[in-house]
Write a protein that binds this DNA or RNA. Structure first.
Length: 559
RNA sequence: GCGCCUGUAGCUCAAUUGGACAGAGCGUUGGCCUCCGGAGCCAAAGGUUCCCGGUUCAAAUCCGGGCAGGCGCACCA
């Protein structure tokens, strides 16, 4: 309904001779925040007032008739400084409910972003260790955003970028070598303990490596100095990366997160994309040599300093491959490249945008969502985490402790830009006070309600639009308004890249349902009225189930 | 020192991206099951939106200056 109102508003604006506002039409109208203002409110007059050089109330009064004629409003009035408040006949809401009912599982779908192609990259953790709680947040946000974008009509591809080559992989090899008791080898750079990866997984990687005959041979050769260190790294790191990636995929699968594609940095290397990118930058005079290294003039694109592309050693930096990777993505014809990064990478944005600009891509298409840090609270205490010491808490531990439903809901209970204190005690021991159960409970309640109705001989298939006419309580109408608003919550979350809006919406919606349920008996002797209420409950239940699905949380029929 | 993020009820967080009297959960206090699931509902109390200025019809939101916390400032990723 929101899209029809927005369209009607635009038509009325043109009819009245006002210039079309810059704002997206969908942002000009919303459900009224208070029912005394009617069903829908528009702030369009405020947007138009300046250009029209009229006061907002006057502008609103010129729009009122045109809008209400188009949407069949029962009442239109100007309020406050220039709000246009519209009230629709109840019949319109009954129709809206029936439409939602007929849509079934497609109830959240819109064509808001139809035709938009989005490449969404997230998690992209190095395969040098297991995923930790921070990656969990990134995964929860990225996966939910991907689903919301798709539900809003966009074409979405989710991608995991795998840094399976480079310095960090070599460090992993060194850490494993150390676990195997190889302290020194030909051509091996000495590392302090603090520069090594630590933790049980390093030891188990070492065990696995030993157990693989071809790998065990490499270890022996390394020990006997028959195999120089760089060759050892070349041969062993793909194996280690493969093993780590397997573990990462497994954790993600249990977290209900999947990707359309896994892009390996080694592929860029193998296909010569990195050299190609560097050459292009050189040709354009955007790369220069200094102190034995090759630098990218990122300062020309607003970065605070130039960045190294090729080290003094001749090895390209991570940034060089990232520039190549982003250039490749940009060449794919996507309307938006969304990256979800940990906030500690914020300083990285200008140079990547710079690389895109330098390589003929529009840097504005890169949309980076920075996810702030996660702190873990146990017994009210902050759990200290250190990757180097191997004392960080893994996503696996969270999953084992609270399960994917609670974990995903908690991760989405804050907007990405806020720091997250993940309270394990709240998530676990006070589980009955947990918002995720509050929402799931409502879904189970509807399921049980439907079963009860069936026992009484009430079958939803027999419901007809006329049965909805019995829905006259203000509580019923409010539930209709909010439940049928679901697709616009999803579209809003997708447009703003703010998937956290979905759980918040669900909590509010569920509250309305519980209130209504306590007030009004659903299944009564009045068959027509019961069917009307059951349709309302069915739509509500479907919205909850679809909403939970978008954030990767299950919707059980029994709890 | 510079950059990014954050600061809202006792606690954890929202607020349609500049909109109408700032809203929820937890916690506190007091109520509600003969009846479709009480993991629920109702009511009460709780606010200088960190502070000071500014911009305008309108500021929690934007700008400037402070204060506090987090994260960055590599030829690591």
């Amino acid at each position: 309904m929101k899209d029809k109102l927005a369209a009607a508003l635009i038509e009325a604006i043109e009819e009245a001779g006002f210039p079309r506002p810059e704002a997206d039409p969908l942002d000009l109208v919303d459900l009224s925040r208070d029912r005394k203002f009617g069903d829908w409110s528009s702030n369009a007059a405020f947007h138009l007032a300046k250009a029209a050089r009229k006061n907002p109330r006057e502008v609103a009064s010129k729009l009122a008739e045109g809008v209400s004629r188009r949407i069949g409003a029962e009442k239109a009035e100007i309020a406050g400084a220039g709000f246009l408040n519209l009230r629709l006949p109840r019949k319109a809401w009954h129709q809206e409910l029936w439409r939602a009912y007929a849509q079934g599982d497609r109830v959240g779908h819109t064509e808001t972003l139809a035709g938009r192609r989005v490449l969404l990259e997230f998690v992209s953790a190095n395969p040098t260790g297991p995923l930790h709680v921070g990656h969990g947040r990134n995964a929860a946000i990225g996966d939910a955003l991907g689903r919301a974008l798709a539900e809003a009509g966009a074409e979405v591809r989710t991608e995991y970028y795998v840094n399976d080559v480079g310095g960090q992989m070599e460090t992993l090899c060194a850490s494993v070598a150390k676990a195997l008791g190889v302290a020194e080898a030909k051509g091996m750079a000495q590392r302090e303990d603090g520069e090594m990866y630590a933790g049980e997984y390093v030891d188990s990687l070492a065990e696995v490596l030993k157990g693989e005959p071809s790998m065990a041979r490499r270890i022996d050769e390394l020990r006997g100095a028959d195999l120089p260190w760089p060759s050892f790294v070349d041969q062993v790191s793909p194996f280690l990366a493969g093993r780590m990636l397997e573990a990462i995929r497994h954790d993600l699968a249990d977290f209900r997160v999947g990707f359309h594609s896994w892009f390996h940095e080694s592929r860029l290397k193998a296909e010569g994309k990195i050299e190609g990118t560097i050459e292009k930058l050189k040709e354009r005079g955007l790369a220069y040599e200094n102190e034995g290294a090759l630098w990218f003039r990122s300062t020309q694109f607003g970065d605070e300093k130039d960045r190294v592309l090729v080290r003094e050693t001749g090895a390209p930096t991570y940034f060089a491959s990232d520039a190549a990777y982003h250039a490749l993505k940009a060449a794919g014809g996507w309307d938006a490249l969304i990256n979800i990064w940990g906030a500690d990478h914020h300083g990285y944005i200008p140079r990547v945008r710079g690389a895109l600009a330098a390589l003929d891509a529009d840097p504005r298409r890169l949309d980076v969502i920075l996810v702030q840090m996660v702190s873990l609270l146990r017994d009210g205490q902050r759990v200290e985490m250190s990757k180097r010491k191997g004392t960080y808490v893994t996503l696996r531990e969270i999953l084992d402790e609270v399960g994917p439903d609670v974990a995903r809901f908690f991760y989405l209970m804050r907007e990405p830009s806020s720091h997250l204190d993940f309270d394990l005690d709240l998530a676990r021991t006070q589980s009955e006070k947990n918002p995720v159960y509050y929402v799931q409970y409502a879904h189970a309640r509807v399921a049980s309600l439907m079963a009860h109705a069936g026992e009484k001989g009430l079958v939803l298939n027999e419901a007809e639009p006329r049965h909805l006419e019995t829905l006259q309580l203000e509580e019923e109408l409010e539930l209709i308004r909010q439940a049928t608003y679901f697709p616009w919550v999803v579209a809003g979350a997708a447009r703003a890249r703010e998937p956290h809006r979905i759980p918040f919406y669900l909590i509010e919606l569920v509250r309305l349902f519980h209130q209504y349920y306590n007030l009004q008996r659903i299944v009564t002797e009045d068959r027509a009225a019961s069917l009307g209420r059951l349709v309302l409950c069915r739509v509500f239940g479907t919205v909850v189930r679809r909403g939970l699905d978008l954030i990767g949380v299950s919707a059980p029929d029994k709890m």
